[in-house]
């Protein structure tokens, strides 16, 4: 019964998702992470079933496992099974992490500074001449990476846009970087992930992803509607 439940999980999830679900990605980075999650999820089910199946076997059929010497049990289960799985996973995640974690000056990225304070986000668009500011709303163009630099003026906050697969802490005294890339237009949820005091719950913001022309027009007007 348990496997049936877990296999049905994706079906349950595809319905009624909010606008801040990591499993409902709106960009290639988030999609890659979601894919990694599903692969790990199904692999975990197999490994879990294996361990519990072996437990059921040794408990319910005494002697069935005795043909395998003790040392083999430990060597196969404790070493030969986990080592290749872990190695493969580490390589994949190393490559993916290298791709995901933004480094300085990635080409045509739009530069935005996200300044956090208790309890709001201030986004400053560094590529526009007058460096306009929006509060608790991040405007960005579709299909173009946005390099967000986070800073904080009081405590530690964490900027998280689940549908774009980006999260980075805003630490006072430090400037951290995260790259956001959307491939769909829309209105998505963003939030503060690090507990930052009594206003933490409501330190949410919106991410508005526009068509490039619409974004350019907004940027030129300084986001004044």
């Amino acid at each position: 019964m348990f496997p049936a439940i877990v296999l049905a999980v994706p079906l349950v999830l595809s319905g009624c998702a909010g606008d801040a679900s990591a499993l409902d990605p709106a960009g290639p980075d988030a999609r890659a992470i979601a894919r990694l999650w599903w692969v790990m999820f199904y692999a975990s089910i197999v490994l879990f079933a294996l361990v519990m199946g072996l437990f059921a076997l040794v408990m319910l059929k005494p002697g069935a496992g005795a043909r395998l010497p003790e040392g083999r049990w430990i060597l196969w289960g404790g070493l030969w099974m986990p080592v290749p799985v872990l190695m493969a996973l580490l390589v994949v995640s190393l490559v993916q992490g290298e791709h995901l974690l933004a480094r300085e000056g990635s080409g045509d990225a739009l530069r935005v500074e996200a300044h956090a304070r208790q309890w709001q986000w201030e986004f400053r668009y560094l590529d526009a001449e007058n460096r306009p500011v929006t509060v608790d709303v991040l405007h960005m163009p579709v299909d173009r990476p946005v390099e967000v630099v986070t800073t904080s003026e009081d405590v530690i906050h964490s900027l998280w846009v689940p549908v774009l697969g980006g999260k980075i802490d805003a630490v006072p005294g430090h400037r951290n970087r995260v790259r956001l890339l959307a491939d769909k237009t829309g209105n998505f949820g963003g939030l503060c992930a690090e507990y930052c005091g009594t206003g933490h719950t409501n330190m949410r913001f919106r991410v508005l992803v526009h068509e490039p022309e619409a974004f350019r027009a907004l940027l030129e007007r300084g986001f004044v509607e």
Binding site: L54, G78, L90
Partner: peptide
């Protein structure tokens, strides 16, 4: 990240030592 993943190995050794104990008893 690698060190964190490797911790799974000694954990697995213990779990399979327990399964081995049960299987031979």
């Amino acid at each position: 990240s690698a060190a964190s993943a490797l911790v799974a190995i000694p954990t697995a050794v213990q779990i399979f030592a327990w399964l081995a104990t049960l299987s031979h008893g």
